[in-house]
Design a protein around this nucleic acid. Structure first.
Length: 820
RNA sequence: GCGGAAGUGGCGGAAUUGGUAGACGCGCUGGACUUAGGAUCCAGUGGAGCAAUCCGUGGGGGUUCGAGUCCCCCCUUUCGCACCA
């Protein structure tokens, strides 16, 4: 291409692609014209495209953030080109341990640090060219935001869904704080610092999310979410069907009592040869005989002291005998009552029947303490008297033995029959249990919204009146937590000493703050109402924009954030504040990016800094590359060497527009390819198959320019729109150069013409005995007879066909297989 | 241990329902244009073979006219959860 003719003409359009200049130009224009603004009130076809908001870290924007946001941005821009009024807001999740720990590390105050981080993020995000309407930006640390986070707490309190209890909680000795169950990872380590977690007894605020377990589970069947995410939630909620069975026993003082157990295998009750209670089970004391008292007490002490890691990683069973016996309601036998830490107080009833023959844990325990092991289920090819060297846990094909009147029953029917039988004496009832625990929202920390409650000696626990919200988080210098188990706020009497809202006498504020996950459990409700300080979310705008049409985010939030958000929405729905109970109609989990085959980490020093790449290659090429490097829902491997490919693609696109002509007619074959490309891209974007959409466009550019031909205008122009969601700046530039008015994003997505996209001649594959022998060009709608004739005329085929074919398989428009 | 995802050229990855394995890109090889090329353009690029052809989607069986795709067994990687009765 000869540039010299236009190079000296300042009015001529730029002839080589200069991404930096183009991107600056369009980011400025977008801002001036309000291109990314959505008129929330007047929108006719609202489409809420949400992405998980970032935590504004001091290190700046991570390429993973950009990967996530770009994927959402493409989807949002595509929907806009399809005629929707797209709302694509973004904000900052700036409260929480993360920020606080970092502030502590660098010796700064989070109130100073966070605004700095946010302004850095803001700059980076703007350089990426996202279609975000920044007028609706929110920050969870803004009193105008957390005021409503506190309001939500009060609603749950009002509804009886927030309660306080003494609980053994996970305590991180390094972060010096309580952790939610979800923050304890790999069996007992702090999610953030990796320290072994200890158990502590503290008064904590909880939300009754477990009350919602059945609905949280059931609704998963009706929402359009990534299957992997739904599976993770199902597992987390952990429904199991079983029965509660009562075992009669006597307390040491002679009173009769019952021990209730939960089991999923009531069919094995004839094999229950002992019982086990959790060490902290309330009945332990009254069941312990004087002779066993010492042993039991020392065992209980040992287990409470032990940290979670030792407790959870050890498969070795420990325990102590209480000295008491219970009656097996099926056999009538006396069976010993033990305590052991392999039984968890938090699950079921905190007590189990020990069936060593058919549960491996029970088997290990029985072996260790020499308790009788009885087989009550027999496999298909087994003998009822074969001794067990491990628990026999299979159900399918199992038959009951040594089970009295139930001998010969299959496992499944036996479950019901035995429960029914015991139920006659009120000793059993079917029950469904869930693994999910109530959500502990208390944090003995500084950097969060204070829980809006006042304690009064006269009135007890008094909610802060809604008109008094927000309870402002005060600026304090000494925000470092200590191991006292209380928040740093508890050291500031001037803050927590307040009048009781009820009686006016001196009261004391709750000094704990709430979990960050509460901040993020409702932020999507707030976006459309940002700026309205009268209500958390305004009724009509909420009705119009929610639930969220499309939510894209990381699967690391599959159970935490996404479950909590569903729960909060459900509660607000039940209280009449929302017209829906599922907040995200569609959710897709994106994958994660690694670099050169390795995980990115600060310590490895292989983190991709988006600034550098945008600087060198341009935001458009960078965005396109991120989307090209792998399937969006699986992530991909970031390789520096490969970015040049997507940049070359944009160069070639740019050059095509510069060199295109309006003279003559477009080429028929090229136009067919164009329409095939439109179809492919239009199909791929909705299913987030961005990498293949880009590949299709690259292929088309190759066709456009093949043999250094001059492309026709009609061949090129629709491509600009196809590229625009991926590379918005260059698309605007080319759109303008081509005489387009306003923003390309207010134009229409090109329609594809099915007739034009269809090939007249197709390459039919010819196989002989299933092996490809040739390919012949035939009319698209060729019939079987003609196809056989055409195939046999081909030398490469005829060679392998001797005599008449035995059979012919014809796939119209595709393939012909001759069997000889 | 339980659960999810995945194993395809030198590399990242394509292949809606079983129907041309390796699209697209990187890299590499050769060529063109150049004072020059980490620019651009053209051609080639799974392996073996001069060729016809044969072999190839982690391994082993199977179903089928036909299997990367479906079924059975095994191996490896990876990510969650982890004594949940």
């Amino acid at each position: 291409m000869d540039n010299s003719a236009t190079r000296n003409d300042p009015l001529a359009p730029p002839v080589t692609y200069n991404p930096q200049a183009i991107e600056q130009k369009w980011q400025r224009i977008w801002q001036q014209r309000g291109t990314n603004h959505t008129d929330l009130q007047r929108a006719q076809r609202p489409f809420y495209a949400l992405m998980m908001f970032p935590y504004p870290s001091a290190e700046g924007l991570h390429v993973g953030n950009l990967f996530a946001f770009t994927g959402n941005d493409i989807y949002g821009r595509f929907q806009r080109l399809q005629g929707h009024n797209v709302f694509e807001p973004l904000g900052y999740d700036a409260f929480g341990i993360h920020s606080e720990n970092f502030a502590l590390k660098v010796g700064k105050h989070p109130m100073d640090l966070i605004p700095q981080n946010i302004s850095n993020f803001q700059r980076q995000l703007e350089s990426a060219g996202l279609m975000v309407d920044w007028r609706y930006r929110l920050e969870t640390t803004d009193p105008n935001y957390y005021r409503w986070t506190q309001w939500i707490f009060l609603q749950l309190l009002k509804k009886g869904l927030a309660y306080k209890k003494q609980a053994a909680v996970n305590w991180c000795p390094s972060c010096k704080t309580v952790l939610a169950n979800e923050q304890v990872v790999s069996g007992g380590f702090c999610e953030r610092c990796g320290t072994a977690v200890e158990q502590r007894l503290l008064e904590q605020w909880f939300f009754r999310i477990s009350d919602y377990a059945p609905r949280l589970l059931e609704n998963l069947n009706h929402i359009d979410w990534s299957e992997t995410t739904k599976t993770a939630q199902r597992n987390w909620i952990g429904r199991s069907e079983g029965a509660e069975i009562d075992f009669e026993t006597k307390k040491v003082n002679g009173d009769g009592c019952e021990i209730r157990v939960f089991t999923t295998r009531p069919d094995t009750i004839y094999g229950a040869t002992y019982m086990v209670l959790a060490p902290e089970h309330p009945l332990v004391e009254s069941l312990t005989t004087p002779a066993q008292k010492k042993k039991i007490e020392s065992y209980r002490e040992q287990t409470t002291k032990q940290d979670l890691v030792a407790r959870k990683t050890s498969t070795d069973k420990t325990g102590a005998f209480t000295g008491s016996y219970a009656v097996n309601p099926a056999t009538g036998n006396q069976i010993p009552i033990w305590i052991s830490d392999y039984v968890l107080m938090e699950y079921g009833t905190g007590a189990i029947m020990g069936v060593p023959g058919h549960d491996q844990r029970d088997f290990d325990f029985a072996k260790k303490f020499d308790l009788p092991i009885v087989r009550v289920v027999c496999g298909e090819r087994e003998d009822a008297n074969t001794p067990l060297d491990n628990a026999f846990v299979e159900c399918e094909g199992g038959t009951l033995v040594n089970s009295g009147i139930f001998d010969g029953f299959r496992v499944e029917p036996a479950k019901k029959a035995i429960v029914d039988y015991l139920a006659k004496n009120d000793a059993a009832k079917p029950i469904v249990n869930y693994r999910i625990h109530d959500w502990c929202i208390s944090r003995q920390r500084y950097w969060g919204p204070p829980i809006p409650v006042i304690y009064c000696d006269e009135c007890g626990t008094v909610p802060v009146p809604e008109k008094d919200l927000p309870v402002m988080l005060p600026f304090i210098e000494d925000f470092k937590p200590d191991d006292s188990g209380v928040s740093p706020l508890a050291r500031h009497e001037e803050w927590y000493r307040v009048a009781c809202p009820k009686c006016g006498k001196t009261g004391r504020r709750e000094t704990d703050v709430s979990d960050t996950f509460l901040d993020s459990a409702w932020y999507f409700l707030r976006y459309p109402s940002v700026g309205n300080d009268e209500v958390p979310f305004e009724k009509s705008v909420t009705k119009k924009w929610l639930p969220v049409n499309s939510y894209i985010g990381g699967n690391e939030h599959a159970v935490l954030h996404l479950l909590y958000s569903r729960f909060i929405a459900m509660v607000l729905h039940d209280m009449g504040y929302l017209h829906f109970e599922e907040p995200f109609t569609r959710f897709r989990a994106h994958g994660h990016i690694i670099r050169e085959g390795a995980k990115m980490s600060k310590t490895q020093g292989n983190i991709v800094n988006p600034d550098e790449y945008i600087e060198e290659w341009g935001a458009d090429a960078f965005r396109t590359y991120l989307m090209f490097l792998g399937p969006y829902e699986q992530g991909g491997d970031f390789r520096d060497a490969s970015i040049s490919g997507t940049r070359r693609f944009l160069d070639r696109l740019f050059a095509s527009v510069q060199s295109m002509t309006s003279d003559g007619e477009p080429d028929h074959d090229v136009m067919r390819k164009l329409h095939q490309t439109i179809r492919k891209v239009s199909e791929d974007i909705p299913r987030l198959s961005y990498n293949t959409a880009i590949a299709a466009m690259m292929e088309y550019v190759n066709v456009l320019r093949r043999g250094e031909r001059t492309p026709h205008r009609d061949e090129v122009v629709p491509l600009i729109t196809l590229v625009s969601p991926f590379a918005p700046h260059i698309a605007e530039e080319l759109w303008e150069q081509n005489g387009g008015k306003g923003s390309i994003f207010d134009s229409a997505w090109p329609a594809f013409d099915p007739a034009l996209a269809a090939d007249e001649l197709i390459e039919m594959v010819v196989q002989v005995n299933g092996k490809v022998r040739s390919r012949v060009m035939v009319p698209r709608d060729i019939g079987e007879k003609e196809a056989v004739v055409a195939a046999l005329e081909d030398q490469a085929v005829a060679k392998f066909v001797t005599g008449a074919p035995k059979k012919v398989i014809f796939v119209p428009g595709r393939l012909l297989n001759v069997v000889v």
